[in-house]
């Protein structure tokens, strides 16, 4: 894209600047639209599994429900509790929202179609996702209210616990791909199993890692059944209790953007990203981003499915799963995978 703007007569620096801004908008605007639609899809799937109709009034099939909700919260009054720490109270949702958008910079949407094709792409994703906890923790503290504070404590413990095992799972993928660059990781998955299946998840050594990544992803984004940070029966609405209007909407959007990011990471790291599922020539007629989108939607369906069917975990069960099950197993698999590669690839 830089070359295109250079051909319009700009010098390199300006062309790079303008093309980066355009790239950011090209990712962020469809993402926000996607988040609005995915909230609708989430409610529809959830309703269908509970034998309800779900949103069906605003627009055809209720398609415009999210936009109506968006307009509603936009027109609401922003209430800042008088006992709160006002600046931090307002900064917290901005952090959540910004961080949720930042990680998308390194996601490859097609072969080479990535905003920042950096060498440490996967580490960047890990670094940014570890920042997400601040939005919740700061909100819990700045609200100066007991339920948000409990929620913040829970969130910080939960997210740190699952980040550890996610780190080890990602190391397995990185070892196999031999690169931290997401584009190269996807390219390495081409014909990975029997020369025909695209994706690390079809590899018997990495399949358990994918299952753990899926579950850890739900815990990391605080989705049901791990949504203890906003368990309504215990904590009212968790860290969002004191929020209203656009501040609340920013949490809402950021949360779903994070869920979409986790779905995308599942697709990119374990199911061949923009590659078709089978390495057959005629499947490449369909553009890469369509395959990626299909995989993201599939994983989002899985997330909604789990949300609709699995009851919420108890807090000690959540911690046990993270530290006593996922951490040792993922650590063991790092040893197993690196040992296997040592004997087969590096001799």
């Amino acid at each position: 894209m830089t070359a295109f703007f250079q051909s319009l007569g700009m010098n390199y620096e300006w062309a790079w600047f303008v093309s980066t801004i355009c790239g950011i908008l090209l990712i962020a605007l469809p993402l926000m639209l996607g988040v609005a639609m995915i909230i609708y899809a989430d409610r529809k799937i959830w309703a269908a599994m509970a034998l309800r109709r779900g949103p069906n009034v605003v627009g055809p099939f209720g398609l415009l429900q999210s936009f109506a909700d968006g307009l509603k919260v936009f027109l609401q009054e922003t209430i800042v509790p008088s006992a709160s720490n006002k600046i931090l109270f307002l900064i917290a949702p901005i952090i959540t929202f910004t961080v949720a958008l930042m990680a998308w910079a390194v996601i490859p949407f097609n072969s080479g179609a990535v905003l920042a094709d950096i060498n440490v792409g996967l580490l960047y994703v890990l670094a940014i996702s570890s920042l997400g906890v601040y939005g919740v923790v700061i909100a819990g503290w700045a609200s100066n209210s007991k339920y948000p504070f409990f929620s913040a404590m829970r969130a910080s413990a939960q997210m740190i616990s699952y980040e550890v095992s996610i780190g080890f799972i990602l190391i397995c993928v990185v070892l196999w791909a031999g690169s931290f660059n997401l584009n190269e990781i996807v390219a390495d998955q081409k014909g990975h199993v029997f020369g025909i299946l695209n994706g690390y998840a079809f590899n018997p050594l990495l399949f358990p890692m994918w299952v753990m990544f899926l579950i850890s992803g739900m815990a990391e984004t605080a989705r049901a059944p791990f949504d203890l940070t906003e368990a309504e029966s215990e904590l009212v609405a968790g860290y969002q209790t004191e929020y209203s209007s656009m501040a609340f909407a920013l949490y809402w959007l950021g949360e779903y953007a994070n869920v979409l990011l986790m779905c995308t990471l599942n697709a990119v790291l374990f199911f061949g990203g923009y590659l078709p599922p089978l390495d057959l020539p005629f499947l490449y007629i369909v553009p890469g981003f369509v395959w990626l989108l299909a995989k993201i939607l599939f994983f989002f369906f899985v997330f909604s499915w789990v949300k609709a069917t699995v009851p919420r975990y108890r807090y000690d069960q959540l911690m046990r799963l993270g530290w006593k099950v996922f951490l040792p197993v993922s650590l063991g698999f790092v040893v197993l995978v690196s040992g296997y590669l040592m004997f087969t690839r590096y001799g």
Partner: peptide, 26 residues
Amino acid sequence: AEFIAMLLVIVYVGAVAVLFLFVVMM
């Protein structure tokens, strides 16, 4: 030094400082 930069964010910002914050808030 992009690797060191990412490690700085992951380790210090993502883990150590969260624990600091956790303790200081309580």
